[in-house]
Design a protein around this nucleic acid. Structure first.
Length: 704
DNA sequence: GAGCACTGC
């Protein structure tokens, strides 16, 4: 029997191999037609001579799928190739595509698979993996665990122009790692891929020598290494240190551009006018994609457009208005992919989500309001502001390009050519807009002692770094001398902000003894809101009743705990439970994923012993409630406000006025003092994720 | 008395 099974298995495998091989052959012609194909030998040759290649290419050049395949059989490439992506879906779909092209199974489906991927909650690789697509966050985590990244011969950093903090950190780390491995038997090759033509700053970044300071800063080097390096520092830049560059044209359909003759102060009106001008004049088919700032504007325009459409005579095609933003339930988002009914034109009203994350099919016309909501962290106030800003030129061009993906298209900018010319060239890198404490902790965990002299592609202001250092010191993540503490080392590995991570640690202390509960709450606070938007009075009342048993008068933290415990206890139909309570099932599923991950990590770090999460899932008594809130106070001691005689809340630190956000269960309540998870400025300064606390708790928590 | 763009570990 075992013999026949063996024969059968062998037969299955060889037929699978055949299938893979045919597919590979079938895909070859389209690969050869890609603009990047004729640059293959250039690219191979330049990495033969140099360690770093800066590759710029517009959309459609094929760089993300082809470059890893070009490099795989180079003599220097004996290890793996990593390819980073900003988004999970991109990492997974690229891995599948490249596996097909190479004629190999994808990921963990077979031990012979040469191509895999690694994203949070989903690692799919095999012992034979040579090319691994992974999110930037995953590569960073690997870089914290393995200092030299020895298993990799090459790291390809894609979509660098998006300039996430993670990509900036990766580039800084890689610059040092290339130097470190350059004279070893296995030098590290780095390919930096970017859409914009701004290769100069990237080239300069990798070319400028940091060997002198690196020898001093790198605490992980032995004294031997340092001696060797100070010798190296005297050498002039040899050819391996030079950075080669390459430009590949893209493949896009042409897009005709039209500006407004005179500026408008009513963008909704202008958009409405433009939509119906296109609709009544342009032949079918051809959908319209409108870029707007946010949910509110989208819903207003949707209403206006639907009203207007009712007044159109029968001779015109019908119109289907579809909103698109991230907070929209998945099922509503899916509607943009379904074909419109007969004789109907789709009009998609979208946020920035359609600029990079979602590709809307069938679009011939783009209408661009030229604005977007952008987050900016104010170091001095410790507050995030989310304000409507003008987009950059590259963002405007990206939006325009969305009309030329499948056919020649048209783009209407609801601003003048003059105002386009005055826009910033590029988006502000995230590193200039965010709280630096998480990034700084990662740097410390990778052995960067002197963070002020870290090779940043763009340096954040000194104040941002100082604020972050202070914050980490206050959390106990750093020692007094600025070196990373044992706690800090563990926090850097947790998929949480340093503050939330610190809360987890606090909860594991025997006198607090509430880690499972705190994990539940921290999981909620680290994903999108679990409570569905309630936008009409009617639904709001409905939600009040439906969520009744879950709401806790102590505040949002304990309300979130009640929701997770009730959801976890639901064994029959969780989706239905979520619907009944007007809670997002999608968000709840990610909460459960995070909860599982955090529980496993706490177990591994020996913070969580014995008890299972299920056993702990009972409603906390008053004593435990106090312990839970005190843990949050340890991580968020800067996010505390007290009630003033004028009935407003003022922060303890900085004496800023802050209002409880309408989404909080404590909205409208007057309490001695509040603790909050987030301090956000939109129309005014709001506290989100709020709980009632007693002022005297602060001393106790901060003393320990 | 009134509301958060988008990613990611």
């Amino acid at each position: 029997m075992s013999v026949t099974n063996g024969v059968k298995r062998k037969h299955d495998e060889s037929s699978k191999d055949e299938k893979h091989a045919t597919k590979r052959q079938r895909l070859l012609p389209s690969r050869r037609a890609l603009p990047i194909w004729k640059r293959a030998s250039d690219i191979r040759q330049s990495l033969q001579q140099h360690n770093v290649l800066v590759l710029s290419g517009e959309t459609g050049s094929g760089k993300s799928t082809q470059v890893p395949q070009f490099l795989l059989d180079c003599a220097w490439c004996r290890g793996k190739i990593a390819v980073t992506q900003p988004r999970r879906v991109a990492a997974i779909s690229l891995a599948r595509r490249v596996a097909e092209e190479m004629g190999t199974p994808c990921g963990s489906s077979s031990p012979a698979s040469k191509v895999g991927y690694s994203v949070r909650f989903d690692e799919s690789t095999s012992p034979s993996t040579r090319v691994k697509f992974l999110t930037e966050g995953m590569l960073l985590q690997e870089m914290l665990r393995d200092e030299n990244m020895k298993e990799y011969s090459c790291i390809i950093v894609d979509e660098v122009h998006e300039r996430s903090v993670n990509v900036d950190l990766i580039l800084g780390f890689l610059k040092r790692l290339v130097q470190k491995r350059r004279s070893t038997k296995r030098p590290l090759k780095v390919v930096v891929m970017s859409a914009t033509a701004d290769v100069d700053s990237l080239t300069k970044f990798f070319e400028s020598s940091n060997r002198g300071s690196a020898a001093v800063n790198d605490i992980h080097t032995s004294s031997d290494d340092i001696r060797k390096r100070s010798l190296d520092a005297d050498e002039s830049i040899d050819s391996a240190d030079a950075v080669s560059r390459c430009y590949v044209e893209g493949r896009q359909y042409p897009v005709k551009l039209e500006y407004l003759g005179t500026p408008t102060d009513d963008l909704l009106e202008a958009a409405l006018h433009r939509i119906f001008h296109i609709h009544c004049k342009e032949p079918m088919p051809g959908d319209i994609l409108v870029f707007m700032t946010g949910q509110e504007a989208i819903q207003s325009l949707q209403k206006l457009a639907e009203e207007y459409a009712e007044g159109l005579t029968k001779e015109y095609p019908r119109i289907l208005v579809l909103p698109l933003f991230a907070a929209l339930p998945q099922s509503s988002q899916q509607r943009i992919f379904q074909p419109a009914p007969l004789n109907t034109r789709k009009v998609i009203l979208s946020t920035n989500i359609a600029e990079t994350s979602v590709t809307v099919p069938g679009v011939r016309f783009v209408v661009d309001t030229g604005k977007a909501k952008m987050k900016q962290f104010r170091n001095r106030l410790g507050l995030d502001s989310l304000l409507i800003k003008q987009i950059s030129k590259s963002s405007a061009d990206q939006r325009k390009g969305r009309a030329g993906r499948e056919f020649p298209g048209q783009c209407y900018r609801l601003y003048t050519e003059d105002s386009y010319n005055k826009l910033e060239n590029d988006n502000t890198p995230e590193i200039l807009r965010c709280d630096m404490s998480e990034a700084l902790l990662k740097m410390k965990a990778r052995g960067i002692e002197d963070v002020m002299n870290f090779p940043f592609l763009t340096s954040p202001p000194r104040e941002a770094l100082e604020k972050a250092l202070l914050q980490l010191l206050q959390l106990g993540a750093l020692e007094e001398d600025g070196s990373i503490s044992a706690i800090g080392r563990q926090l850097a590995r947790l998929p949480l902000t340093p503050s939330l991570g610190r809360v987890i640690f606090e909860a594991s202390r025997p006198e607090r003894n509430c880690l499972p509960e705190v994990i539940d709450i921290a999981s909620c606070l680290s994903v999108e809101s679990i409570f569905l938007n309630v936008d009409t009075e009617e639904i709001r009342e409905q939600a009040q009743i439906a969520r009744g048993q879950l709401l806790r008068r102590q505040g949002d933290h304990l309300t979130l705990l009640a929701a997770v415990q009730a959801y976890a206890a639901e064994r029959s139909d969780r989706r239905q439970w979520a619907e009944r309570h007007l809670i997002s099932h999608r968000a709840m599923q990610s909460v459960m994923d995070v909860r599982k991950q955090l529980t496993a990590q706490c177990r591994a770090a020996n913070l969580l012993k014995g008890l299972t999460t299920q056993e702990a899932s009972t409603a906390p008594d008053e004593g435990k409630q106090e312990q839970i809130l005190k843990c949050f106070l340890r991580g968020f001691s800067g996010n505390v406000a007290r009630l003033c005689p004028d009935h407003s809340y003022k922060t303890f630190v900085g004496n800023q006025t802050v209002a409880i956000h309408p989404s909080s269960v404590l909205f409208g309540r007057k309490l001695e003092a509040i603790l909050y998870n987030e301090f956000v400025f939109t129309n005014k300064a709001y506290a989100r994720g709020v709980s009632a606390i007693q002022v005297r708790w602060l001393e106790e928590v901060l003393e320990a």
